[in-house]
Amino acid sequence: MTLSPGFRGRHRSQAAGLPPGQYLTTDFPVLSAGPTPRISRERWEFTIRTEHQVEHRWSWSQLQQLPVQTPTVDLHCVTKWSKLATSWRGVSLDDLFAGVDTAAEFAMVHSFGGYTTNLPVADLLDGKAWIVHTYEGADLHPEHGGPARLLVPHLYLWKSAKWVRGIELMVQNRPGFWEGVGYHDYGDPWREQRYQGD
């Protein structure tokens, strides 16, 4: 162990309940790789495409017909900040997948603006993931992924793709945007899977 002489640390109690290497923030930092896409609700649509090229499509108003859920979850960003008890409104991926016939094990999430991220289909189901459009009672701001983003809070936040527009179901796994430049394929914050090889 390399000790840093004189370093005390200030947030010991706050760090107690956090994944390893994380610190608490009350801010909501914005991280994105490029300009923020501006997508109107009229233009917005969401598609799930199966490994058999069958497409399931929802417009904004069709999304609003699905049961509303209000998850309150902790967020963990790979850049080290964590934000606790954030509240959202949206639709469970379970409801979106209800009529989808697939045996694919992997998903590539696609966003307006070209961003992608991959994850196992199992991590999208069983109450673990949502398409959310409301944050702390207000419409989700474009900077944070509005009109709608994916929310998969048990993985590092880069998996919760902003400006989400669809999910491609894949028989073979393939890396998404950050996964292709050195970040971990799965990204479990509790196992500190930040980078390839972690």
Binding site: T25, P29, G34, P35, T36, G113
Partner: peptide, 26 residues
């Protein structure tokens, strides 16, 4: 946000505008 939006408005393709947040927060 302001600069990236302005660059896109000036005709730069979004994929030629790479951004990184680097601020005092946290």
């Amino acid at each position: 946000e302001a600069v990236a939006t302005a660059l896109v408005d000036l005709g730069h393709p979004a994929d030629r505008v790479k951004t990184e947040r680097f601020g005092p927060s946290g």
